[in-house]
Design a binder for these strands. Sequence first.
DNA 1: AAGCCTTAGTCCAAGCCATTGACATGACTG
DNA 2: CAGTCATGTCAATGGCTTGGACTAAGGCTT
Lengths: 262, 262
Amino acid sequence: MCCRVLCASRDGDFGKRDDEPVTTTPGRTTRASRTRLPRGALTPERIVETSLRLLDEHGADAFSMPRLGKALGADQTAVYRHFSGRDDILLAVADRLLEEAFEGFSAQPYWADTLADVCRRVRGAYLAHPAAAALSGPRTTRRPAEMRAADAVIGALGDAGFDPAEAALLYRVVADFALLWSGGEAAFHSLDAKTQADEADGWKRAYRAADPQEYPHIHRVRDPLFEVDSADVFETALGLLLDSMEHRAPRGDGRARRDPGE
Amino acid sequence: MCCRVLCASRDGDFGKRDDEPVTTTPGRTTRASRTRLPRGALTPERIVETSLRLLDEHGADAFSMPRLGKALGADQTAVYRHFSGRDDILLAVADRLLEEAFEGFSAQPYWADTLADVCRRVRGAYLAHPAAAALSGPRTTRRPAEMRAADAVIGALGDAGFDPAEAALLYRVVADFALLWSGGEAAFHSLDAKTQADEADGWKRAYRAADPQEYPHIHRVRDPLFEVDSADVFETALGLLLDSMEHRAPRGDGRARRDPGE
DNA sequence: AAGCCTTAGTCCAAGCCATTGACATGACTG
DNA sequence: CAGTCATGTCAATGGCTTGGACTAAGGCTT
């Protein structure tokens, strides 16, 4: 008995625990640390939602089991009753991102518009949740939202007249473009503000200071280089890809013109 | 008394420390833990090399300060004399990757070949060191190798007849394509074997099982879909981008034909 | 309705990790 | 030869993930 008391005091848990109830929003009455959570309080949905919120609001660094537990008002290890581990949660979050991306999605009349729509949707969702996108990385689940999008893309490529082998290859091009490009952009945006600023600064400085002798071409375009915007880069890349596809497509070249982005 | 014993055993440090000198390779005579390393034993170069080796051989998870220290035969904290932290090392590793990518690089006679070469070099280096590439993520330094490549790309776009604003935009397209795409692929390859297999399995299973009613187009191309190879996807995407650029280029359309990849 | 069993939340601890500050040692500098 | 500075080492702090033991609550059988 005495041992329990002394050992416990050594951790100093109780003292620290006391400040837990002081939540960031003092209005909340639920003193999570004292009362046991009711039975069905934790659900996979709630856990995923809270994880996503945590990632959105406080960045990738803020996503840890202790913090997630605290945000849920539960013990940090309670989550393990619903997910096998941190990674498992992240996978579910990734899935949710794609669901969000393809909410209300349906194929467009002209095939190339469908491809553009899919790419823009993925990018939109990823940039709306950069930390989540960066952490879930190149992993995807094969759930309905994603499958519907895949089917639409392959269908669009069929409309364009590509045979199955070509369609399969081009499907991968479109899917990888959307996921890898958006994922990379998201990873950059999920860096902490300082690192991001340093990175941007570094570029500007390097371009501006580029020795005209050694790097004549950089020097020539250094001003427009500062003006380039990531969204433009994405749209340009997308446009280049789709132009080529239209060019190579057995059907549909020039018949129904593609909508311009934005 | 009983309390002291119980509580102290909680740390349990000393017992564990004993196994440290038992290195994984018992043949090695240098008992790193006993003799102090000579003065100039650690250099930034050696640290970066060792980090890269560690990442290559044992994956991203194996990169930790304790392991790095052990691999260097030094105390884990000795590294902090040369780098400000883990992140700083990773940045240096990223830099080294790009140096490796652009070793012996020079512009090609035909502009589009230069762009293709740059993209393939980045991908090659990243896939040769996937863990390092995945960890260094979207961050780059602006060191000579990279600047030379950037200058060559912009120069090539100038050769194609693009004006500075177009060249700046297309430079970003090419650079982002190479870095983001390769980085994403590398991130996938740096997952542990099991996760990677699960992911691949998941795809196969999902495609094969795709309900012909619900996902008719997936069903139609499910066989060729298994055959698609990442390298083909990359080359196809690159080809599509370059085709469009040649098409849009004021000069060089169709005059000197581009080398096919591989 | 009583008791059992499963489920879900909690507690505690083990073993990682990055980083910091105090300390030691050896090489240059004056 | 004394002082200083660079560089390697040590001990410690406070995070992190995860696993195992514990416990309460609800549904099930009888």
